[in-house]
């Protein structure tokens, strides 16, 4: 009995709960503010990526404010209105307040959603430039293959029956299609800097995903579909490509690289690959 009394009537429980909530807010704010290496995204390499980051920051500002206010409000209420012998203040609510916070959240949340629409539209509602470099991305358990159309600018026809990883035709390029003779198939993606690239994403077996953090883009490779995705990388460097859609037992090893190179290096890459075909 003695123990129970101490636990329910005393100030210790509300104080501890409030303290935990305050510490939670403090640590969360600290981690967001101090850019710890395990809590930051890499810099984006596209203008759309920068826009997404901007929208992210805006959302963070809004939700962060709500988070801080509501957690601290809860901490305050818990401590302030603990049972110390008073009688509770009787009220059933206030229609005015309900109307105010309903309107406020509608404006805030929907406004945020509509603003976020811009970055989305830029990636998904627009067509790539006609001179964009076309690269076909194919996922299969558990590798990526990237196909360039070669000098003729045309992809060869694909025939699933001719797929054979062991004989060097992992995509099943139809041997009878002349357009396919000069196609380049490589395990890493190389693109020139500041030039628009249009990826044609597809899958041979199950659903995969093409994800490059620095592009801020994920796109599922959906069997039966060819999904276009365009971007213009503005920074030379090597970036990791990973699969983020559960695709089977080797899922976590499905991995490749995106090399953003200078125009000269890109030409050299194409020449070298063409020579190797």
């Amino acid at each position: 009995m003695r123990i129970r009394k101490r636990n329910s009537g005393s100030v210790a429980t509300p104080a501890l709960l409030s303290l935990i909530l305050v510490v939670l807010v403090a640590i969360t704010v600290y981690v967001f503010a101090s850019n710890l290496p395990w809590a930051v995204r890499p810099a984006p390499i596209t203008s759309v990526g920068a826009e997404i980051d901007h929208q992210y920051d805006l959302t963070l500002a809004v939700t962060g404010t709500v988070f801080i206010l509501s957690q601290l409000g809860l901490a305050f209420a818990v401590f302030k209105f603990r049972d110390h012998g008073q009688r509770a203040h009787f009220t059933r609510g206030s229609n005015t307040l309900e109307a105010i916070w309903t309107t406020a959240t509608i404006v805030l949340f929907l406004g945020l959603g509509l603003m976020g629409h811009k970055a989305w539209a830029e990636v998904r509602f627009t067509a790539p430039a006609p001179d964009a470099i076309q690269v076909e991305v194919t996922g299969n358990q558990f590798v990526f293959n990237f196909r360039y159309p070669g000098p003729d600018g045309k992809f060869g026809r694909l025939d699933p029956k001719q797929i054979s990883a062991s004989t060097g035709n992992p995509l099943g390029i139809d041997a009878n299609d002349p357009a396919g003779k000069d196609d380049i198939v490589v395990p890493t993606l190389t693109v020139p800097v500041n030039h628009e690239v249009n990826l044609l994403i597809r899958s041979q077996d199950v659903i995969h995903n093409f994800y490059v953090r620095e592009l801020r883009i994920q796109q599922d490779a959906m069997p039966g579909m060819v999904i276009p995705l365009h971007f213009t990388a503005n920074t030379i460097g090597q970036y990791e490509v990973v699969c983020t859609q559960l695709c089977g037992l080797g899922h976590s090893r499905m991995h490749s690289y995106l090399n953003v190179v200078s125009d000269a290096d890109y030409d050299a890459f194409l020449k070298q690959q063409a020579a190797g075909q």
Binding site: F90, T91, R92, G93, S94, N95, L97
Partner: peptide, 9 residues
């Protein structure tokens, strides 16, 4: 929080 209806309780 303001209470709206105390008197009629």
């Amino acid at each position: 929080m303001p209470s709206t209806i105390v008197t009629e309780e």
